[in-house]
Design a protein around this nucleic acid. Structure first.
Lengths: 339, 339
DNA sequence: CTGAAAGCGCTTACAG
DNA sequence: CTGAAAGCGCTTACAG
């Protein structure tokens, strides 16, 4: 059934039926009830495409799957997408997902012209990121998950990874550690850059030298964590503690530590960032892992909310939010032992 | 710019411009060139919503994020979504993602009435699954990733997990193992059911008793793998080999094996199913893990292709495809040693 | 080979 | 409080 049929069935005009259904105040309450009832009865659902064409709004957000080499780690991205889908559903929006197979820029351009989404969600932000400017130029609203160097205001949500990793470093320093490694992502991504800064500033604030030789950057996989940790443990002066940018890196690091005949906690202290993925949880480890924790799924939901605000015309410069990250102390971080 | 402006700019009618752009054969080649050129020049992109309303097709597929408790494992699902997005983009389609926050059925109903997607993609199929019938009843096209018990024909793609796990079992039996454990997912899901059947039939074919006490079903997480393996290793007659339904279960199992002071391969043989996620790769383990392998991302792309076929009106009963799974032999599977 | 016109199914000033 | 009418931006028989 469509609107015309519904209105004929009711003996009312399309105008009135439409207004009744859309909650306008100038409809007789009695009439509204009849309309709503009949709509339910006949199973009427407005044709979304007609609505979109008529109103110019789509109630849909867009997000593009970054290219293979150009993302941090898939499971985190995907969990984020799930969060966005949740948040979008929560405020009555849908989510349109695109793959950047034919080039990311093409993809953004098409979306902007298409009129298919009200706002675009950007992830995996880099320090130097052309996308914010491109979209602003295309007149396409967007909100970023993560910060970037931008001369124009842009809507964004981010976690304070710098503070998180500084506190993680300070915790380990407080436990007596000095040789504290950092297994990080690619520093072109703002998040990795912030974490690096946090790690450095933990030493600076304590007036200690920064052990730059214990820094490893790259992929955020189990394999990368394993290889990096194995390499560091082979050093003449190996680390006594390590901070990992994600649970997959941590899983690899744990494996390398065991392979070297060492024990997590007793021999090597470990702190990992936990994005809250259910497939790999720090509490399950033995000893359980100390973590900096922030749910990437919740972040997705929050970004969706912000996208709704942007779509509803909020002032861009006001749509920003930086949240703290929890530090959860568990047994994988222990006082440095004398040899 | 819209079609009207473009056609005025060209001094042609909207009809002709539209036909030229959509590749109709009855347009003068010269004219078509002028039109295409001008469209590019002015940056014309058709308003997708108007197109959808006019044609009744959306060139969009839909997929719904299953509810938290109702999914196998998020990273696999998400990698699948990425594959679908790839495949959809490849055939000029988009992907609409929904979260089932207000109930899965409501979600499907709305989508079906909405006219927002041409075909729906169903994942995490259960043996008893009401969705196929519901959608057929709603007149909504769909294609399933996985099989289900259905009295009506349904479009589906699946991997032959039964054969994969039978072969994994036979490999281990051939190496002398008899106490072969299975760490599986929830058997209400068809995939877990098939794997279970495969494991059982490996023993049956070899005329051996099935070690039902070595079967563990549940979540597909690192934690679940760790706990299940620890429990099994504590048995009076522990397994000498284990088959894991995914890499996260395997990661947990590996950890439990090490914690017990045993070595993978030498003491306990291990075969895992690898979905091809880049964050956790079997080759990186020491020893590298023997796997049954099938890329879940490729599966997603294939399902998108099939959805395109369905949307283009292919006969449903013909849209089905069951693919074999590779068995990749590495050092984690070794001959049983005498004690 | 090209164009005028109707139609897709909604929304929304505007008039009453 | 309700309705007739125009419009959103396309596509597609149909006529020429």
């Amino acid at each position: 059934v469509n609107l015309k049929e519904l209105s004929e069935h009711l003996g009312l005009s399309k105008t009135t039926v439409s207004r009744a259904l859309n909650g306008f105040s100038d409809v007789n309450e009695e009439t509204r009830k009849r309309v709503v009832e009949a709509a339910k009865q006949l199973g009427y659902t407005p044709n979304a495409n007609a609505q979109r064409l008529a109103t110019g709004r789509t109630d849909t957000f867009g997000i593009v799957f970054p290219l293979a080499g150009d993302r941090l780690a898939d499971p985190m991205f995907s969990e984020f997408v799930a969060g966005v889908a949740d948040g979008a559903a929560h405020c009555g929006r849908g989510l349109y997902v695109l793959s950047a197979t034919d080039g990311e820029e093409t993809c953004y351009r098409r979306l902007a012209h298409n009129k298919v989404v009200d706002a675009l969600i950007l992830t995996d932000m880099k320090v130097e990121d052309l996308r914010v400017r491109l979209l602003s130029h295309l007149g396409q609203q967007c909100v970023c998950y993560g910060r970037t160097a931008s001369s124009i205001p842009y809507a964004h949500f981010d976690l304070d990874h710098e503070a998180a990793f500084r506190r993680a470093g300070e915790l380990l320093i407080g436990l007596g550690h000095r040789r504290i490694a950092l297994l990080n992502g690619d520093v072109r991504f703002t998040i990795a850059e912030h974490r690096h800064v946090g790690w450095v500033s933990a030493f600076r604030r304590a007036k200690l030298a920064v052990p730059e030789d214990l820094l490893a950057c790259g992929a955020m996989s189990e394999e990368a964590g394993y290889k990096a940790m194995r390499r560091l443990l082979g050093k003449s002066e190996p680390p006594s503690a390590v901070i990992c940018a994600c649970m997959f890196l941590a899983a690899g690091a744990v494996r390398a530590i065991r392979d070297a005949g060492l024990q997590v906690g007793r021999d090597i202290s470990l702190v990992a960032h936990d994005d809250g993925l259910s497939v790999i949880r720090p509490e399950a480890y033995d000893p359980p892992l100390t973590t900096t924790y922030a749910s990437v799924r919740a972040a997705g939901a929050r970004v969706a909310e912000m996208a709704a605000a942007v779509a509803d015309g909020a002032e861009i410069a006001t749509v920003k939010d930086i949240r703290p990250v929890d530090l959860i102390f568990r047994d994988s971080a222990q006082p440095l032992r004398a040899k």
